[in-house]
Design a protein around this nucleic acid. Structure first.
Lengths: 155, 155
DNA sequence: TTGGGTGCAAATTCTTTGCAATCTC
DNA sequence: GAGATTGCAAAGAATTTGCACCCAA
């Protein structure tokens, strides 16, 4: 699917979600949605806010927070609390990887994030559900690594 | 190992860490260490602070934060950011489980935390290290579940 | 004795909230 | 037009920082 088609599809899904939940379809909400889908990486509230500002549009941080909450409910983004600093978000449609390798610099900041998916996680989930007799509805797996100093990694 | 022996051993390890890193062995630091090892669960900064207060001792929150940082460096505790609220900590010596089932109430607060260990995680880690050509030094796995409403779970 | 540590309060950072003005339905 | 949404600024919550005083080495 081409980028433009994806965006159209996503817009529709968000619109549907907003209607179904009696939320209004404000221009701010779609501006934020499009900004997010123009980013190909994890992002925090401030980067969204700054991109919108840089594009000459006006918006309050509160609106960004509110809209991200709606997008979260709509399942169009996912939220991560990688540290005690600002939360990170990522698009979730067409991206069902919940598993990350986080490459951390010595100062604790994020060098890069590699996503992957491994069927063994789901096998563990099933075993746990049976053993603990409860329903697991999500998971997050983080592996932590240090940046390479020598040869380049195969990403 | 009996509880008293464990505590003695932990104290020694902390003392050794402090000496080796040119930190002072202050009474506050050992009070915090002992408070932590008297708790059999995950805890946040405020609960440590309140227990110490309740025991009639005086201490600043800043000292709790500082000391938890040292204990983290010493490898005697682990830190988790389960949500965007206060960080949670847990003892890490004699407890090498890095994998959690977090039972969340509808309001997002933590109902309980179940720890487990599964060798498949380490297998995934090894595969990733080889595939990405980097060294992974830690991981966290969180499964999210809702509290039971019916029959009791097997914990 | 002396520099690291503590305690307090103020500062910071991230997020939420209250409320008047505005815009969607 | 009614009520949800926005924007702003102020409030909150968690954590960090600055600095005078104190104490472990």
């Amino acid at each position: 699917m081409a980028h433009k088609e994806i965006l159209l599809h996503i817009r529709e899904r968000f619109a549907k979600f907003l209607t179904e939940n009696q939320h209004r379809k404000t221009p701010e909400r779609f501006t934020i949605l499009e900004t997010i889908y123009s980013i190909d990486d994890h992002f925090d509230v401030d980067s969204i806010y700054k991109i919108i500002k840089k594009n000459g549009m006006h918006m309050s941080r509160a609106t960004v927070y509110n809209t991200l909450e709606l997008l979260l409910q709509a399942g169009l983004i996912r939220k991560h609390q990688f540290s005690d600093k600002a939360a990170f978000y990522e698009k979730s449609l067409y991206n069902n990887q919940h598993d990350h390798v986080i490459v951390l610099r010595p100062d604790g900041s994020i060098d890069r994030i590699i996503e992957f998916c491994d069927p063994r996680i789901d096998a563990i989930r099933k075993d746990l559900e049976q053993y603990l007799n409860l329903k697991i509805d999500a998971h997050d797996l983080y592996f932590y690594a240090k940046p390479q100093t020598d040869g380049s990694p195969k990403t």
